[in-house]
Design a protein around this nucleic acid. Structure first.
Lengths: 344, 344
DNA sequence: TTCGTAATTGCAGAGGATTACAATTGATAA
DNA sequence: TTATCAATTGTAATCCTCTGCAATTACGAA
């Protein structure tokens, strides 16, 4: 397979004995061209299977009609949903999308930004890596006046638009639900403490406790590094706590699933001995046994909204001032939080 | 946020009083330039935060160093894994990736191809949509001498390289496992019959039966359209079959999971009353109750291999002749196929 | 001193498309 | 008949970078 040559406007022009600019205008359906000329050119273009060279076009008009997306990892169902929403919306608005994953590393995140900027994307959608705790690279983007929007994993002190979930609210919802089911000793399994969502969800957890008059107990706040090992450690730790918590709220579903799996090897039963809840509503949450109570956050919608806002910004349809869009989450009650023995 | 202007070579040239071509050569570390000149230019470039304009570069050298990827849907864990493998490998080899999803529709697939070709990608990696049963768009690519590689969902009659799993072999593995566990009446739940994987996995299923001297029974071959409804219909159908199959092998995990969930509402128990197996080893397979026996197909590896081959082709390192790379699958035995009552 | 050669650097065209401006044509009005 | 204007098309510059070739400079050799 040799490299195929593309038909260019020049070739159409030569074939028809007109100038390249005429071809250009014809293909743009310019009103100042003779209809018959336009017709002939359109015909020839079709026949020769002409396709505009987007690179040349972008270079000329200084707009690539391409957006860059950086997510921590594509294989996460949540981020895949975001990407899906971004793609669909961007495409219908005439934009392409280049996707990168940071693999949760700040170095990769920076490299991705460089590449995408070099590729002349018109704007960026970024969800920060787990490692990202310094923000010069984002400030640089801001100073270079490159449009970008942060979503889900954001940093609040960057003066750009952000789309997030009401993480605190979602955590509040689920902890409130646990409290209403009669649980009092509720543990919170957090991720690394500097993560945006760790903080926000802890906020909601604490607020719910306060609202229900349950005193905060630091020993009930556990931290996992979100690896399988970390999650299993937490699971073991809970088993050996005395007194054992009545319910455990995990910051994200995968932690809850790992914990649940580990507990199954012991005598502890969910929800009979201990209730469990997660956050995200991953596909796995619905199918584990017992099904996991969790908080649904529609990634597709988030992607859609983030990209819509970015495009509005690019089109000048959105205000110059950064806005913060906060999406609501939905509590999904399943069996893992239903205290059957004492209730039925 | 106004649109930021990028530093160009022209500006570096002006600042240093040299020509643009000198700057260009300096940044390429050309040996014919005076070292001191190179040093000064490199310094200025760094100071001015120069980034090459990849669009202009690509236009000039007629290579975009970008690959296009088309998958049926990004939110599928398997395809997300493929993408991840593609990304990582492409990046380390200096290529960017543009990802599109066809949403399982052929029209979208065609549109994606158009866009990516217009964007001057150097090559394409395509996994066909469920709807794709005509192939002119692929033949056109071939005739236009555009490099592309098909993966996972391929069409055999296109003369390009393909990367697939040994689908028939994987199905054989799992059905053989069921047969060895003593099951004889084994049903196969297929997807739409013109799907590549439907055919291949059926092949393996039938071959295993033959090898074990079990006659083929057409009533044991069921077809789902792979929607939730379709899967539930199949689940119900199996419940009402008389005699009931002893084991059910589903073409893909999601079908098995849906079927399992539906059966849980009935009196039927897995694996006590009926064994169940899937294919793909989705994350859900490991966490359902009982855990699902399935066939693991490493998507990350597939992506890696597919893109490696494409890049070798682009670099002229691979032969011109299309090759067919077949990856082996791994049988993952879990509880859903363990006939506990009769065995223990 | 003069010439040849090597070392450096600049000029200009190309890659494909867009667009302000100029040029051509034909027709209408005076 | 000629000036004028509209309609149509072409010319050339531009976007940014790369690169073949020409030009310049300097230096040692004759």
């Amino acid at each position: 397979m040799k490299k195929g040559r593309q038909v260019t406007m020049k070739e159409i022009a030569k074939k028809l004995g007109v100038s390249v600019s005429t071809v250009s205008r014809a293909l743009q359906d310019s009103p100042e061209l003779h209809p018959e000329t336009k017709r002939k050119i359109a015909e020839a273009a079709k026949e020769m299977n002409y396709r505009p060279n987007l690179l040349a076009q972008s270079l000329r008009i200084s707009r690539s009609k391409t957006l860059g997306v950086i997510v921590p990892e594509i294989t996460s169902h949540f981020f895949a949903s975001c990407i899906s929403g971004i793609q669909d919306t961007a495409n219908t608005r005439g934009y392409n999308v280049m996707i990168c994953q940071s693999n949760e590393r700040i170095a990769q995140e920076k490299a991705n930004i460089q590449t995408l900027v070099s590729s002349q994307v018109d704007g960026l959608l970024i969800s920060l890596s787990r490692e990202t705790n310094t923000f010069e690279h984002l400030n640089e983007l801001y100073e270079r006046e490159i449009n970008f929007v942060l979503f889900d994993r954001v940093e609040e002190n960057i003066p750009v638009s952000k789309v997030t979930f009401n993480d605190a609210g979602g955590a509040y919802q689920v902890v409130k639900h646990l409290l209403e089911n009669g649980f009092r000793r509720i543990a919170y399994v957090s991720g690394p403490e500097d993560l945006y969502i760790s903080k926000k969800r802890k906020e909601g957890y604490l607020r719910a406790l306060t609202d229900f008059g349950v005193p905060e107990d630091p020993s009930l706040i556990l931290i996992s590094d979100l690896t399988l090992e970390g999650n299993l450690q937490v699971a073991q730790h809970v088993l050996h706590m005395d007194p054992c918590p009545e319910a455990v709220f995990c910051m994200i579903d995968p932690v809850a699933v790992d914990v649940l799996t580990e507990w199954k090897k012991s005598v502890i039963r969910v929800p009979e001995d201990i209730a469990l809840a997660g956050f995200t509503d991953n596909p796995t949450a619905a199918v584990v046994e017992p099904p996991l109570t969790t908080v649904a956050q529609p990634g597709y919608e988030m992607g859609k909204l983030a990209v819509s806002h970015l495009l509005d910004q690019l089109d000048g349809q959105a205000s110059e001032d950064p806005v913060s869009i906060v999406l609501d989450t939905t509590l999904v009650i399943r069996k893992s939080s239903q205290h059957l023995p004492s209730k039925n």
